[in-house]
Design a protein around this nucleic acid. Structure first.
Length: 490
RNA sequence: GCAGGUGUAGUGUAGUCUGGUCAGCACGAGAGCCUUCCAAGCUUUCAACCCGGGUCCAAAUCCCGGCACCUGCACCA
């Protein structure tokens, strides 16, 4: 079994995620988060949120269903739709833009009619079987909502960003006119992928966390970039290097200071969520790879099963969106600061939570020498923060353990309980779902109110007083307990 | 979307070529016994032929269509 299949199998068996609608044969590109995956996803989102809250961002929540006018202004209606052609003979399908580019035809058209002209006046052939292409049609990557009552079309949003962009005036008023201003949103977005594959990596409905940071163009930085560790950086010109984000900004590799700041913040978030720093890199988009709204973009890519996958895109959107919305809505989007009037510029860190979660699973998965499988999930994100286990069911131990569970859950989120099977079997169960600590109630507990705490990765155990465990909240969402146990003697 | 491969309990598989026992096994899960710390053992239970047509006395098995998954190509604003 490949490591990819192994993770998918574990995810399904232990309740992280599985294919949606499987009762009715399944549907390509849609996955359910199962009980544990749902907890894991929420915890990853919480880490992300906490970092942005600490950085001073404000949060909103806007509709998924979006009227056409918004997407016309944002450019998605035109640019997000590919104009495609199908070979009449072998039914191969082409994105005409890239096909026509290869033929060196200048000024590629932007409409179906334009492409029909090009096909009429040029011999554009199918690269598979050589048949001449004649037809062109629109293939929109957005889901259109079927609606009979509205006079205009509705779409499911392809990104959460526009919900923030179109609220800029209201948001900045709320923010009492200050800049810079960071606005964040977590939510679902939708893209009608042609052939979704690889589990959660390319879904048609996916979870995004996007932050639009609005700047005065003359003061385009958010804050001091802390000294950080080195990462692999892949610039669009030249070879990859290993440098900290701060160094890369100082040397001019990352030109925009705000971009650099949020790249660094992104790295901190990913590491905290459990992404392996050695399987993380930042890659700059090539010019022809940039989205229609972007002038520079660095992707945080994670290595998943031998492929580098974009997990977060940190993009310089300039004043593209606000300018377009000003143009299309007629509303003035400019602000006046110190006598200068301008349309703010935007830097956007856009995270894909499903991909981050996938990376976290892959990067934390390992097998012990005895063959047992372990998810070494970070304490901050594991579905259960700890699990309470009675050594025996009899002699009042289970009752004691249940008492402890109640006390612990008053101070900690999501503590599990398991009294079924041998103790070793139960440790193994928790290892496989990434629970960092197992708390075992034994005969000694009945005498002196102490329990053993077993740390997942070292499998080391120490004995602690129950009262000490209850002294603080969220004791288990914490690496220091882990380090304490690992450095202990026994 | 194209080409090839695959689809059997929750998971992994045997059986499919060569149609014919109550579709077998392992893991898992449930109940009970045992057990004083790393998937032990015993008893017992649970649960599957992707969907729809067709051929045939008879289909998990052969044929057609659909759906899904895997690999490659294309696509990935």
């Amino acid at each position: 079994m490949s490591s990819f299949e192994e993770i998918i199998e574990l995810a399904k068996r232990r309740g992280f995620f599985w294919q949606s609608f499987s009762l009715y044969g399944g549907l390509n590109g849609f996955y359910d988060y199962a009980p544990l995956g749902s907890l894991l996803k929420d915890n990853i989102i919480s880490v992300w949120k906490r970092f942005y809250m600490d950085a001073g961002a404000i949060f909103i929540d806007t509709p998924v269903v979006t009227p056409e006018s918004v997407l016309k202004a944002s450019g998605h209606l035109d640019k997000f739709a590919d104009i495609a052609s199908e070979c009449p003979k072998c039914h191969a399908k082409y994105k005409l833009e890239s096909l026509v580019e290869k033929l060196g035809i200048a000024n590629p058209p932007s409409s179906v009619d334009g492409y029909l002209d090009v096909l009429r006046n040029n011999e554009v052939k199918c690269t598979v079987c050589g048949t001449r292409l004649v037809d062109a049609y629109q293939f929109n990557l957005m889901f259109r909502v079927t609606n009979n009552s509205e006079a205009f079309d509705l779409y499911l949003r392809p990104e959460t960003a526009q919900g923030i962009m179109i609220n800029f005036k209201l948001l900045n008023n709320f923010y009492r006119g200050k800049l810079p201003m960071a606005v964040a949103q977590v939510g679902k977005s939708f893209r009608n992928e042609i052939s979704p594959r690889q589990g959660l990596i390319r879904m048609r409905e996916f979870n995004q966390g996007e932050v639009e940071v609005f700047f005065d163009p003359e003061h385009e930085d958010w804050g001091e970039i802390p000294e950080g560790e080195k990462f692999t950086l892949v610039p669009n010109s030249g070879d990859e290097i290993s440098e900290s984000i701060k160094e890369a900004h100082r040397s001019g590799l990352i030109k925009n200071g705000a971009l650099a700041y949020f790249m660094n913040l992104t790295a901190l978030i990913l590491l905290r969520a459990g992404v392996d720093g050695r399987r993380l890199r930042f890659r700059q988009h090539r010019k022809n790879e940039l989205a229609h709204y972007s002038s520079d973009c660095w992707d945080a890519e994670v290595l998943i099963d031998h492929d580098w996958i974009e997990a977060v895109g940190i993009s310089d959107r300039g004043d593209y969106d606000l300018t377009r919305h000003q143009e299309f809505s007629g509303e003035n989007m400019s602000v006046t600061v110190d006598g200068r009037t301008f349309i703010p510029k935007v830097v956007e860190p856009a995270a894909g939570f499903d991909r981050i979660l996938t990376a976290v699973l892959f990067h934390s998965y390992y097998t012990r020498e005895n063959g047992n499988r372990v998810l070494g999930l970070a304490c901050d994100v594991s579905p259960y923060s700890a699990c309470v286990l009675p050594l025996m069911k009899k002699d009042g131990i289970a009752e004691k353990a249940k008492e402890l569970l109640v006390k612990l859950t008053a101070h900690n989120q999501s503590v599990a309980y398991d009294e079924s099977g041998s103790i070793g079997r139960r440790y193994a169960r928790q290892d496989e779902i990434g629970t960092p600590y197992c708390i075992t109630v034994d005969y000694q507990t009945l005498e002196d109110e102490t329990v053993t705490i077993r740390e997942r990765d070292s499998t080391k155990q120490i004995r602690m007083r129950i009262d000490d465990l209850l002294m603080h909240d969220n004791t288990f969402r914490n690496d220091s307990l882990k380090k304490f146990i690992q450095s202990s003697k026994s």
